[in-house]
Amino acid sequence: MTDEELHAHLIDRQGSRRDLNTPVLVIELDALTRNIDRMAAFAASKGLKLRPHAKTHKSPEIARRQIAAGAIGACCAKLGEAEVLADGSVTRGLHITSPVVSAPAIARLVALNARTEDLMCVVDNPDNVRALGEAAKGGKPLTVIIDIDPGIRRTGVASPEAAVGLFRAIRAEPALTYGGVQCYCGMQQHIESFADRKASMEDRAAYVRTVIDALTEAGGAPAIVTGGGTGTHRIDPALDLFTELQVGSYVFMDSQYLACDLTGDGQGSPFETSLMVDARVVSANARSMVTLDAGFKAFSTDAEQPVVLFGASPGAKYVFMGDEHGALIVPEGEPPALAEVVTLAAPHCDPTVNLYDTYHVVQGDTLRALWPVAARGRSR
């Protein structure tokens, strides 16, 4: 049965969260709204534009709420995500942050450009520039952004000279429009110490300026410098580098970001945990331990074990027990009883979201809406 078939009748029924079939992906609506509003207000206070990353939530509904709060559009890691957002009425300000290189994908990109406004995509190779220019001939001009490698060696040009060469290749294609540069410092986002993260970002910003200076000298001063992230959002404005922020995980605040000192002022995270997984006790035959119905299929496994939020005594810890199950170790106090619900935080929100078809949107203990994870699996 689909989530709609299982749970639509529970919407707006007081206490209905307790009756959801578990494991289930849950959004706390009020916390999500506060997170969206806080980041929008922060960016506005710093004179920066906000183009949040939809790879985190994969949801046109959430993207529309971010835009309503002041965002200029949305970033998408893959072309398929951008197509889903466009299908969901998010048709302005989309930016694809990974290269689009195959002939079939380029054809889809040109088609997407024709039905949206202000679409952008990244490039880091002259051959890709030429392919994009050829495909866009005779149609709507396509805006391209030079991707700068901040040291990860994943994507992006590797030197100022390579950036200038790419800029000249773009200028040689009449159907392409040069928009600026992208530099996403992914390695810096999860440095736990604020001071260490700040020092690392300052180092990377100094390098990016050498690329921008070379482009400017060649006649390619970038109008857009897009990058930044949730982990560095308090640092990015002072770098005097970015024109817009690609923040993503702030909407949900997974365990990886909560482990970081985001502000450096001792005040804790300015954002709340709004994404969680409700699981249920399905076996309670061992002392100080019960078994939950959520295992590897319910959480991403590239980070720490899920953290227990509610439903168990302090000190309770979750441990994976296989595809379908997890152990809840309760060293003190009584473990939750059979069929009781335990709420856990997502250890890494992006891949955890990709495991589910639907967000179950709640206020307190009441289900309010079902939002599809519409871009789930759209990684091509």
Rank of each mutant, 00 (worst) to 15 (best):
L6E: 09
A8K: 13
G15I: 02
S16V: 03
V24T: 13
L25H: 11
E28F: 02
A31V: 09
A31N: 14
T33D: 15
I36W: 12
M39P: 00
A40W: 07
A41R: 12
S45Q: 12
L48P: 01
P52M: 09
A54N: 10
T56L: 08
K58F: 04
I62Q: 10
A68D: 13
A71P: 03
G73Q: 12
A77W: 06
L79G: 01
V84P: 00
A86E: 01
A86I: 05
R92S: 06
G93C: 12
I96E: 06
I96K: 08
P99G: 02
I106K: 08
I106Q: 07
A107C: 03
L112G: 03
N113Q: 10
R115S: 04
E117T: 05
E117N: 04
M120K: 13
V123S: 05
D124T: 00
N125M: 00
P126K: 15
P126L: 13
L132G: 05
K140C: 01
T143Q: 13
I145N: 03
D147P: 09
G151I: 13
R154A: 06
G156C: 04
V157K: 02
S159E: 04
S159D: 03
E161C: 00
A162R: 06
A163I: 03
I170T: 05
A172P: 00
G180H: 07
V181I: 06
Q182K: 14
G186Q: 11
M187Y: 13
M187C: 01
Q188N: 12
H190V: 12
I191M: 14
E192C: 05
D196I: 00
S200I: 01
M201Q: 11
E202T: 03
A214G: 02
L215N: 07
L215F: 11
E217W: 01
G220E: 08
P222Q: 06
A223W: 10
I224Y: 10
G227T: 07
H233P: 00
H233E: 02
R234E: 11
I235A: 14
D236Y: 08
A238N: 04
L239A: 08
D240I: 00
G248W: 04
S249T: 10
Y250H: 15
A259W: 05
L262D: 05
T263H: 02
T273G: 11
S274G: 09
L275V: 01
M276K: 12
V277C: 07
V277K: 04
V281L: 03
V281N: 07
A284M: 03
M289D: 00
Q305F: 05
L309S: 06
G311T: 10
S313P: 07
F320L: 08
F320S: 10
E324K: 14
G326P: 01
A327F: 14
P331A: 04
E332L: 14
A337D: 12
L338A: 06
L338T: 06
T343Q: 13
L344C: 06
P347F: 15
P351I: 09
P351F: 08
N354T: 03
L355S: 11
H360Y: 10
V361E: 09
G364W: 13
T366H: 06
W371S: 05
P372V: 05
V373N: 09
R380A: 15
